[in-house]
Structure formats: C-alpha cells, structure tokens
C-alpha cells in the first residue's frame, strides 16, 4: 500500500492535471497541443489515482466508470464532425468556417468545427487509456483473489490466506 503522503499528493494533483489537459486541448489551434496529447495528459492524471489508491478505489471514480461510454461518445462526435458535411454535398471533414474565412476567437480558442473533432479525440484517448488499464487492473485483482481462494481450498487450512496476505 502507498503512504499517506503519496495519496494526498495524487489527490491534489488530479484537478491541476485535468486543467492543464483542457488547456492543451483548446490552445491546439494557435500553439502546440491537440486532443490526443490532452487526452494522454488527462488519462495519466486519472491513472495516477489508481496507482495511489488501488484498483477498488480507482473503480469508484466516476471518470473510470464511464470510460467506455466516453470512448463511444468521443468516436461518435468525431465521426459526426467528419461526415456531416456530406449531407450538404461537401467533401468529408470540411470544416466551418472554411479555410481562409475568419473565425471567432476566445483567447487562444478558435470557434471552428475541428475543435469538436479534437474534443472527440480527447474523449476517445481518455476512454481507451483509462478503460483498458482499468480492465487489466480489475482482472489482476480478481485473479489474485481467486488464487487466494484456490490456495485456501488446496491447503485446507483457514490460516493460510491471511498469512499469504501478510507476505504480499
């Protein structure tokens, strides 16, 4: 188990990390950054919680529970942005306002449809990273528990699992 210090630090770090990731996401149009790197930063922050608190606690985070849904929503958003122009007869991925036109700015953020696409990518990356690592962690915990139970039945002594638990 991790120390109190690590856990507190990880908890404090979560919100700043999420904020930085959103920053990287929105400034991707005038500066370095995009949905993919933002997604990786955010999922690192979330996975850090898992490292600090263990798999069971990790599963209780709402961000982790809805990770698969985030992947679907992100993919759907990205696809919708890609294919919607086809409805009006334009080529796929055509963005609005089109290249050359001026867009409304809000700080570094430009209000153009590719931002939506990037938000979709952001969601896919978070959902994939958190979801896949969460699944592996869950499986590992389940396996350890099964093994403990198996060892117990094999040895037939009630004291064995506790002893194993101590050694780990």
């Amino acid at each position: 188990m991790t120390t109190e210090m690590t856990r507190t630090t990880c908890r404090i770090l979560l919100l700043p990390i999420l904020m930085i990731s959103v920053g990287v996401l929105v400034k991707g149009y005038a500066d370095i950054g995009d949905g993919f790197s933002a997604g990786v930063i955010a999922s690192l922050g979330i996975i850090l919680q898992g490292v600090a608190f263990g798999a069971e606690e990790f599963d209780r985070l709402p961000l982790v529970r809805y990770a698969p849904l985030a992947t679907f929503a992100g993919l759907f958003l990205a696809l919708a942005v890609a294919f919607l122009p086809v409805v009006s007869g334009d080529p796929i991925f055509l963005h609005h306002p089109v290249a050359g036109d001026s867009a409304t700015h809000f700080g570094a953020l430009e209000f153009i449809t590719p931002v939506l696409f990037d938000i979709g990518v952001f969601l896919i990356v978070i959902g994939f990273c958190v979801g896949s690592i969460g699944a592996v962690a869950r499986e590992t915990v389940r396996r350890e528990r099964d093994r403990g139970a198996q060892a117990e039945t094999r040895r037939g002594s009630p004291g064995a699992p506790a002893e194993r638990g101590d050694r780990r």
């Binding site: 679907f72 080529p91 796929i92």
Partner: peptide, 20 residues
Amino acid sequence: MTIALPLAILWFGALFIALF
C-alpha cells in the same frame, strides 16, 4: 452517389452495433 456513403454506413453502423 458519393464515395463517403458506404464508409459512413459502416463507421456509424459499427459504432452503433458495438454498443449492444
């Protein structure tokens, strides 16, 4: 007939089916 139609059907269809 646009090239995008088969791709659109398959993309959205695959995503939709994966939910169930």
